[in-house]
Design a protein around this nucleic acid. Sequence first.
DNA 1: ACCTGAACACCGTTCAAGT
DNA 2: ACCTGAACACCGTTCAAGT
Lengths: 244, 244
Amino acid sequence: MVERNTTRKSPRRTDALSRERITAAAVELLDAAGEGGLTFRALSERLATGPGAIYWHVANKSELLEAATDAVVAAALPAPVTPVAADECVELAKPEAPVRSPQDEIRAVALGLFTAIAEHPWLATQVTLQLSLGPAKPVPLRLFESLGRQVGALGVPQESWFTAASALMHYILGAAAQNASNARVAGSEVGRAEFLDAVSAAWEELDPDEYPFTRAVARQARDHDDREQFLAGIDLILAGTAAR
Amino acid sequence: MVERNTTRKSPRRTDALSRERITAAAVELLDAAGEGGLTFRALSERLATGPGAIYWHVANKSELLEAATDAVVAAALPAPVTPVAADECVELAKPEAPVRSPQDEIRAVALGLFTAIAEHPWLATQVTLQLSLGPAKPVPLRLFESLGRQVGALGVPQESWFTAASALMHYILGAAAQNASNARVAGSEVGRAEFLDAVSAAWEELDPDEYPFTRAVARQARDHDDREQFLAGIDLILAGTAAR
DNA sequence: ACCTGAACACCGTTCAAGT
DNA sequence: ACCTGAACACCGTTCAAGT
């Protein structure tokens, strides 16, 4: 891990290629130009190499996307926390750490992903893609574990753990993904308001016979606060798990 | 709509190109070879034309994917039904139609999409992509409307309609998408069992310190029935909406 | 109005060749 | 062991030209 730190006189090759540097550059490109912005050519230009060099560290593009997604999500999610009311593992590691209720811990995880997707809209597609590729991919795994631990501490009977944790995970990913569309269109607060107005207006112009419900909630859609709505959904699911 | 039906003697040009024929062929390609299988070249070969011809009927590839997704989902979802317990619109159109409770109607909608995604795994990505592109796309709109109508009939207070319908929609899309991964890998029942065994085994080999919860539910993951689990999640959310 | 098919720009990926 | 960069196969899309 320790590299000989030659006095920076010869600037060449301080910057050897590595999986980490490639991943970081990929995230920058994705943030700057969206999903279409990540290209092996653009990436190798940014890293001052040829396209082939990248393949020495990364197998292909989907592995690169997975690594980028994983890195951002890992940074966004709070480190998994042993729940306070767990039956086993009673000894708390660090008494000075702030202790949150399982409900609050779940909300913190949810908001962490929500915020990350708002800041990196390309995450929405990638995260749901990982989900659709199987439950063993890093992001679903991490999320499932973080949520599940708290679900256990909630007093949910063990045979419902899987169901409860899955419901939470799916809601979080879906709602956060939908919200990314706002972020994509609306960088500024003004743009956001305009976007919501447009959606609301479009909904109000729908055929009253075909879309009575959507029309009825069009105003709600315009006036809602994203985070508030998002957390309201979490609470709804938590209420469902508590309702036995 | 009516075409002159010349006696099939001259086989040429009975098959004029149309948006519908193109969409149908696109669905066939997607079903046969997955997302990578849909190509303007492959498509034009199947339709016995040049690639350029398709652009006369369809603006670009994403519009084509949207049309294919929309067509399959529309066929899979039961026609939106006016709920039985609605406050307005009391007159029932067809008394001989089987009347379902709002809960059952919601389950029917959910299962419709679940089955469609199981039969067309490529739908998973496309549907969640539409969701992440905004709430005005056809699929989210259709699903939201179908679910929302029943939510209203459930006795949910109006200010919670948006939250409840959204929670249901996100769960359904997420869970159905995850399930598509099973369908992708496992055409047969045998393959499916093997796949679940593999996931379960992978989960059981996770680091006990990092993934205690996921390890704990690994057996549940192997033995569960997909549809049962899926519906259990729906019922959990319904319980949450009823819990006020 | 609708179709043809060659052409363009660009992409992921490979690989012989270098150091 | 790691990097270079030309080359390959393939893709979405365009457009002058046809009917």
